[in-house]
Structures are given as C-alpha cells and as structure tokens.
C-alpha cells in the first residue's frame, strides 16, 4: 500500500528511463534507420538516400550485372558459423563448467575463495592480450603444436587460424561466465538431497541426471546466456586466432564499419545479430515460463 503519488514515482523512475532511452533507444533507432539507407561516398552513410530493404536482401541474394538476383551464401555461411561457434562454445563451457562448479562447492570456505580468485584472475588482463597469448601457445613452432605433432600420427596438426582455434579462444574467454553462475547456484545447494538420492537407490550418474542437473538448471541457463550472447557477437578472438580466414559476424560488422566504409550494411548485420539474440532470449523466457507453469 505505497502512498507514492504518480508524480513522485515518475520523478524516481524517470531519470533512469531517460538514460536508457537516450543511450540505448536512440542509438538502436539510428542503427535500424541507417540499415535502411544507402552507402555514402565520403562518410559511411548517405543520409539523403531513400530507405529500402536492399541491404537485407544483399545478405542473401547477390545482384547480377543484368539485375537478376543470385543466391549468395557468403554472408549466411558467416552467420551460420557464428551461431554454430557460439552454440559449440556454450555446450563445451557447460560440459567443462558444471564439474568445476560442483567441485568448487565441495571445497572448504577458504579453498572456495581461492578457487573463485583463480577463476577471476584472467579478467585482470585485457582480452586482446590473452588472445595474443593463445597465438603464441598455438602457433606452429609453439609447445602445444610440437607436442601434438609428436603424438599425432596422421600428419601435421594445424592449430591456428581455423575454427578450432577460435573455439579454443572462445571457450577460454567465456568459461568463467559459465562457472560462476552455476557455482552460485550450488553454493545454496542442500547436499542432503544428494544423500537422499543415493539413499533411494540412485547411483552417481542417475543422481547427477535426476537431482543435481535439474536443480542446477537456473545457473546453467544464466551461464548459457552469458556465454552464448557475447560469443555470437565476439570479434577479437576470431580476428586474432582465426587470422581473418575464419570470420564471424562480429568481424563482418567491424569490416563494414572499417575498411569497407559501408555503414548501412554493417548496421544491417548488427540488426540481424540483435534479432538473433532476441530470439534466443525469448526462446529461453518461453521455456522458463513453461517450466514454471509445470510446477
């Protein structure tokens, strides 16, 4: 029964809404508008051009000399690679992160703090620097490559400048974002539930599948969002470890705004990327609602 008057409420919420509107809404609007415009000759965008969906068709079809539209898979393949890489990164991060989070929550208080510190230490260094470090680790005369080539009997192993390199880099960069939310969930976990599962005849695997994973699901979903969304838009890792050969959407956008000076097309890809993320978030929200409804 708050006695807050509508004016007072507007006064309290207003500034925050205004900041969001100016700093998020307006730029997004500009981006969406630019995506409909044509390419400029001097600066990246021709503000005078008539808005059209030409940039969006360009994503899929290529205009031939005689004006017929030909299917062009270049951009779609980059988009597909981005989604695939982000999904693979998320799956690998869950697979690696869940056991680590589980193990961390079984540690003593002090050891837990050390583990959290160790996991957050990479954040102290710039992402760019860390990716260059991977460049040194994975390059042809590097330790890993030499070891891999010594063991692997089927010809030389190429670790750098391909999708695998990007995947390694992405998993490395985003793993902490998976571990921490899952761990936060386990911190409140009632371990007697695990004892109860054992007591009722569940072996380790079934206790994991039937009790631990279902109860860790909120953390896993939070972690998956924190990993999938930034991986989808990432470009540093692909630029450095992909060597420009393997491109992701982030690189494509950067290229359009940079060298290509084609802001409208960059904006178009950005809008598509944003729409993809929105779809994923909405999918998760719907799935969550359904889970709640089942309860």
């Amino acid at each position: 029964m708050s006695a807050t008057s509508p004016f007072r409420r507007a006064g309290l919420v207003g500034p925050a809404l205004l900041v969001v509107l100016i700093l998020v809404g307006v730029p997004l609007g500009i981006m969406a508008w630019v995506s409909l415009l044509g390419r400029g000759s001097t600066i990246g965008v021709d503000w005078q051009s008539a808005p059209s969906f030409a940039n969006y068709t360009k994503l899929i079809w290529e205009e031939d000399f005689d004006g017929t539209l030909l299917f062009n898979p270049t951009y779609l393949s980059i988009l597909w690679r981005s989604v695939w890489q982000a999904a693979a990164t998320t799956v690998i991060c869950v697979t690696l992160g869940l056991p680590v989070a589980l193990w961390m929550s079984s540690l003593t208080r002090g050891a837990r703090d050390v583990a959290i510190l160790l996991i957050t230490i990479p954040f102290w260094t710039n992402l760019l620097v860390r990716n260059y470090a991977w460049l040194i680790i994975l390059r042809e005369d590097g330790v890993v490559s030499q070891t891999a080539n010594a063991i692997w009997p089927f010809g030389p192993v190429q670790l750098l400048y391909n999708d695998t390199a990007i995947l390694i880099g992405l998993v490395y960069s985003f793993l902490p974002f998976m571990i921490l939310p899952i761990y936060a969930g386990f911190e409140k976990f009632d371990w007697r539930l695990l004892e109860a599962a054992y007591d009722l005849g569940a072996n380790r695997r079934r206790a994991l599948m039937r009790v631990i994973i279902p109860l860790a699901m909120p953390g896993i979903i939070a972690g998956a969002m924190l990993v999938f969304i930034p991986s989808l838009g990432s470009f540093v890792t692909a630029a450095i470890l992909g060597g420009g050969k393997s491109m992701m959407m982030g690189n494509l956008i950067q290229l359009q705004f940079g060298q290509s000076r084609n802001w409208p097309f960059g904006a178009t890809i950005s809008v598509v990327l944003l729409a993809l993320m929105m779809l994923v978030l909405m999918g998760i929200a719907i799935w969550k609602n359904r889970q709640e409804a089942k309860r």
Partner: peptide, 30 residues
C-alpha cells in the same frame, strides 16, 4: 556397499524432499 546398494532407506531430519519434483515424483523416485 554404496548407500544406493543397501536395503535401507532414510527419513531425514530436514526431510530432504526433492524441490523440483512433485509429491508423487518424490515418492516414485526410488
């Protein structure tokens, strides 16, 4: 033997019911 191999069951002080399962699913677990 491991706990899941023993012919005994426990009623826990805190009940330790599985919060994500219904009453029927809890009872059906074993």
């Amino acid at each position: 033997l491991a706990p899941f191999q023993r012919p005994v069951n426990t009623v826990f002080q805190s009940y330790a019911l599985f919060p994500h399962l219904t009453v029927a699913q809890n009872v059906a677990f074993a």
